[in-house]
Amino acid sequence: MIPALSLHNLTKVYKNGITALHGIDLEVAPGDFFALLGPNGAGKSTTIGIVSSLVNKTGGTARVFGHDIDTELAAAKACIGLVPQEFNFNIFEPVVEILVNQAGYYGIPRHVAFGRAERYLNQLGLWERRHDQARMLSGGMKRRLMIARALVHEPRLLILDEPTAGVDIEIRHSMWSFLTEINAAGTTIILTTHYLEEAERLCRNIAIIDNGRIVENTSMRELINRMASHTLVLDLAHPLTALPPLPGFTACRIDDVTLEIEVPRGADINTLFVALSAHGIQVDSLRNKTNRLEELFIGLVNNKEGTA
């Protein structure tokens, strides 16, 4: 099966001498929902820029559904829809014109483009604002406009660079649902995000890039399974005077009504609650101390820095 994206020994050295990519290799399967994570300046946007031809590569190869960007650039471009990190539309243009013009650049006739614009603007809740200039939209609407614009030529590969940055929770959730739907319909999606919960929830596979090198490339499940333990925070109904023994778990009393419990991988959480009940401890609520992926991410990046 031809990969949706195949990068081999991809290198980028900017004119100022900074090496943004040290020969990375990456493959994304067709139909995948793939996360590309990394700290600021790691090389995520440079990678996306090269694939979408906004950045000239220094070396290596990049193929989109088998089309080499050196020899079949137009065919490769036709496969990609790009949602960049920063707003990059003409703020004075009406919403619907932005979509119809974009479709035109892909050779899609205006009457077809209007139909698609109506469909995607409706799906993303922007149809009522179609005649407004883009500058009149809220931040969340602008993000959704960029997604609609990226989809108007119906690409096989959708690349989203921080698509939910600055978007409120409700809209973020609706965007997640929308992206899940179009992925289920067959569109391959590559997502970069700083919301690691977003990557964990949406993506099946993940690569972590740091200092221009891929430091991890695996499935999300495999990565999460590597966690040796995770920490639960319990809010108690009544103050606790002494810490009871909890066999198999490591407990830490934060204050009178808060406990932190380290849960080893594979441990049965039910036994924890049985033990707590046996000591008359009533739990009001519980939550993960940190996002699991976030812990892994910090661990991977810090380890890399430690060995550099």
């Binding site: 979408s52 137009a74 990059n88 003409n90 013009n101």
Partner: peptide, 17 residues
Amino acid sequence: GAKFQRNIEEMLVAPVP
């Protein structure tokens, strides 16, 4: 203006020669 607002990228990412 298209460079400044970066909407020139709309054309650059498309297969338009």
